[in-house]
Design a protein around this nucleic acid. Sequence first.
DNA 1: TTCGTGACAACGG
DNA 2: CCCGTTGCCACGA
Length: 115
Amino acid sequence: MAKPETLNFYERVYEVTRMIPYGKVTSYGAIAKCLGAAGSARMVGYAMNGASNLEDVPAHRVLNRNGLLTGKHHFKGTHLMQQLLESEGHTVKEDKLQNFEDKFWDPVEMVGFKT
DNA sequence: TTCGTGACAACGG
DNA sequence: CCCGTTGCCACGA
């Protein structure tokens, strides 16, 4: 008997990722924590794997806790993710987002979306 | 159901 | 800051 919530796990990630404001970024752990699955940060990225094709889901705004563009290799273009971030006013150096903490957007403080 | 995998995170050195 | 190891949980076969 699988829980219905687990089935929405991917949708959860997509929704949170979609609501990421322009010029902001977040981490997998933050999203996972926002969903109530703090220990499932890996699943967030796993879910994003299918989202990388969805333009509705700005997966390029999702980085690891260190601000590294860990998933850039999964995008259509090798450096597409970095260019997208730079296009939004960010600064990327060696696959690493500069001033990451300043641009970090915590979804937990936005959890009040309540569907 | 079990096994293996993974765009992470946290800890120790 | 970098490096290696461990834990985490959902998904696919």
